[in-house]
Amino acid sequence: MNTPLTRLMVASLFLGVAACTAEPEPVAPPEVIEPMADPQPVDIAKEGEGELTGHPPAPEAPWANRRRMDIDQLDASMQRVVGLAWEDSAGRNQFVELASTLGKPDYIDSTQEDLTVSLLFQKFLGDAARDVCERRADGEADGDLEPLLMSHVTAETTVETDAAAVDANLAELLLRFHGQSVAPDSDRMNPWRWLFTSTVHVTEDPVLGWRAVCVGLLTHPDFYSY
C-alpha cells in the first residue's frame, strides 16, 4: 500500500490540517460607527471658532483589494526572482509574443490592460513558471547556474539528512518569491515543507522537490498579486 499515490493522499491530509495554521495576516478592523452628536448651533459671527463636526471622521481601514500584476511587472518579477526569462528555444520572450492574448493594450484597439486573473493568464503563468523553474533547478544541479533556488542545500539534501538546511532554504525562497519574512519554525512554512517533502517522497529527487516548490511559489497569488 506504500504507493506514491497513497503517500500523496496521506500527505494531503496533513496539508489540509496544516495549510491554514499560518499566522493570520492583518485584517481590516471592523468599522467603528460613532454615535452622531446632536446638531449644535453654530454662531457664524464667531468665525473660525465654531465646531463644524461633532467628531472627526473615523480613520479608513488600512485595506485594499488585491490587484494582479500586469504582464510587464510579471515578466520583470519573474526574471528578478528566478533570474531567467520565459523564452522559447529561439530566445524569444514569450510574455512579449503573447502580449495581445494576455491582454496588454496595443493602443490601437485598446488602451487599458486587462488585469483579470483569467483562464489564459493562469494557463500561461503556469507555463512560464514550469519553464523557468525547470531551467533554474536543472542549471543549478548541473552547476551551470549560481545557487539561487538551492542556496542553503545541495542537490542531495532532504529533510531526513538536514532538516534545518531545508527550512532555511524554504525561508529564503518565501522571502525571495513572496516578500514574506518567515521564521524557519513558523507554521507558515508547513505547506511548502509539505510540498518539498512529498515531492521528494514521490520522485526521490530533491531537485524535483525544489522545482515543484519554485512552480508553487510562482503560481501562488502571493507572487503575482499585491
Binding site: 500523496l8 494531503s12 494557463k123 525547470e134 510540498l195 508553487g216
Partner: peptide, 18 residues
C-alpha cells in the same frame, strides 16, 4: 499542456497546495 518536466503526482501536489 506546457512543457513541464514534472510528473502527474508532483503536479497534483502543487494543485493541492494552491
Amino acid at each position: 499542456p506546457g512543457a513541464s518536466g514534472l510528473g502527474t503526482l508532483e503536479e497534483r501536489q502543487i494543485d493541492e497546495l494552491l
